[in-house]
Design a protein around this nucleic acid. Structure first.
Lengths: 345, 345
DNA sequence: TAAATTTGTTCAAACGATTGAACAAAGATA
DNA sequence: TATCTTTGTTCAATCGTTTGAACAAATTTA
């Protein structure tokens, strides 16, 4: 018969006839405790199947060793890859992750923040929902003195640590590549410009067009939620233009996929008639025919750096919290959907 | 200047000149507290930006309102969809989820279990790693008296609640469908048979072949990890057989995709030369050309039912823990990769 | 040998919320 | 008016661990 009652530090103390504090110190390897006692305590702890009560120590120590992470959705490879790396780094430092999903909803995001603060997390690492424009809730985190790190989707106004890639440069890489493939009328399936990262991608797109003296055309840039169906809808509009584009740059891979489907349904050859580039390097972009060129965001690095930024804040609480941006350089992955010259590699 | 010190029940008591216990009862709407006091307490709590300390109440009450979830990986749509629904149901009942990933590794799974028990979770909902055959760690959960619910990947020997689909029936549906399409030599890219679900899929496959008097051929069934590259490798082997199969049933969508790639690279027409069916209804199966027929596992229902099974255990701890299987009926989603007759719908 | 230091341990007060029991005041009942 | 209930609150213990301070015993130093 298994004993279901959880054993405590007190039980160990009773067995050995010493005080609970001695046991506590023995378990945490306090220098003032004799080796003899330490060994005995560890032995008894093992026998009693002792499991320290995290709640009690967290309460006493004022820290839970829990880190809350908020992601818009975790079914994209980008986020699950970021999370995996984050977990790895934090785990090594004795922290555990609580993951919550905002599902791109502002309301859900607020609930997540409340839930995390309620759980007494020692910090929050978040990527903001698309919908979020009101920063009140994020300021609540700061007001509580809980370290906050943003990644991918962040807002400068919050003045906290941020990790992401250079979105402006990403667009520049994409447009320059398309230009090198001979494209002259480049359309952009954009994200909503109220979100900083999408605004930057739009800016990069427009500026680079100008740099190459290509006409910037209002009708070639359409903002959307970047889901598969948004990509489809936008592409249909683009195909209806009197003058079709000869390249499409989508600010998200799912939108790019939707666009590709519509092009294939309309017998548009990719990349010969219209070249296509996506964004995020979701795995499926390499699976399908034609494979889709895209921007790689270094998800593993982002996860690692965000976790380290948090750890740094914890280690040096004296350093004033201020905007501290870490911007990674994106990689353009050239695949079939935009490769007209057929490189030999 | 924002006050970063977190306010406690005591602070509220001080402001109002009442005792902390009165405040505690007021906040939990105790009938013996006057409405006047309740209103005043809520008012002050609001003003002080009071956030209850979950650790303290959890410690006192002996329950954390945390549920640990272990998934092999959360980058598949199946698991993220299960998780989403689980979270929804548990959230409504005041529980929060801590997600950990085993990455299909037994060692990581043990670490996850320890971490969750350490966090004093009130229960664990898990889908076992492929690698796991030793149930010692899962028994540890039971020994601690922590409710355990398994989903998708589970073991009967643990004698706990289990939610999953009927794997045997899934194979039956697939094989019958392929037979109806005129296929006679059906290969199976199988998962490792030491895992119960894959064993059942294999059994269903073999039995249904027999039912239709089709020859069962050892060389047509190959076990693997079911990743994309495994699918590729197995398909290459199958194509090298003197007598090629005319249908391939893969026990996972990624393996099916790998197989599809290899077939396309070898100019095998799908479904005309070889029909293909996958398993799990990952979104990409509907995106690609040809779209892949697959088995839908009702991920949302699984998430919901698993969460409810946990809640039920909590509500009725007196009921003896025993094997309680809930088996859902799978749906076969017929798409282009196996549809030779071209239905008109 | 007395005083100072080191070593190993215990004591008791925290951490913040909850809760059974106690109790005074107000209202109802006899 | 005396007694019983009800109402609204306080007291004090508790959950399991941590930690500053105290202290006795052993060891070193003067």
């Amino acid at each position: 018969m298994v004993n279901k009652k959880k054993s405590t530090i007190k039980d160990i103390a009773n067995v050995l006839g010493i005080s609970p504090s001695a046991v506590s110190r023995a378990l945490s390897d306090h220098p003032r405790i004799s080796d003899k006692t330490k060994i005995a305590v560890r032995q008894v702890a093992e026998n009693l199947n002792y499991q320290p009560n995290h709640l009690a120590s967290a309460l006493r120590k004022g820290k839970s060793n829990l880190v809350g992470v908020i992601v818009p959705r975790n079914n994209s490879n980008f986020f699950s890859s970021v999370l995996e790396k984050m977990e790895e780094v934090l785990d090594k430092n004795g922290y555990q992750i609580i993951i919550t999903q905002s599902n791109e909803s502002y309301k859900k995001e607020c609930k997540s923040i409340d839930a995390l603060l309620f759980s007494q997390v020692d910090g929050i690492i978040a990527s903001m929902a698309n919908e979020t424009t009101n920063l009140e809730y994020y300021n609540k985190i700061k007001a509580k003195g809980v370290p906050l790190v943003l990644f991918d989707r962040g807002e400068n106004d919050l003045n906290v640590d941020y990790v992401g890639i250079d979105d402006y440069l990403s667009s520049q890489l994409v447009v320059e590549h398309l230009v090198s493939q001979g494209c002259k009328r480049i359309a952009h399936i954009a994200g909503f410009s109220h979100t900083r990262i999408y605004k930057n991608r739009i800016r990069g797109y427009i500026d680079t067009l100008k740099k190459y003296n290509l006409p910037f055309n209002e009708e070639l840039i359409i903002e959307s939620n970047l889901r598969l169906n948004d990509g489809r809808a936008v592409m249909k509009k683009l195909l209806k233009l009197k003058e079709r584009p000869d390249a499409v740059y989508a600010a998200g891979d799912y939108a790019a996929l939707g666009a590709l489907q519509v092009m294939q349904e309309n017998n548009v050859r990719v990349p010969e008639d219209i070249a296509l580039v996506g964004f995020s390097n979701e795995p499926f972009t390499s699976y399908i025919k034609p494979s889709i060129s895209t921007i790689d965001q270094h998800s593993d690095k982002i996860g690692k750096i965000a976790a380290e930024a948090f750890l740094n804040r914890i280690k040096h609480p004296e350093i004033e919290v201020k905007l501290n941006k870490i911007i990674l350089t994106p990689d353009l992955v050239i695949r079939e959907s935009s490769n007209r010259k057929k490189f030999n590699n």
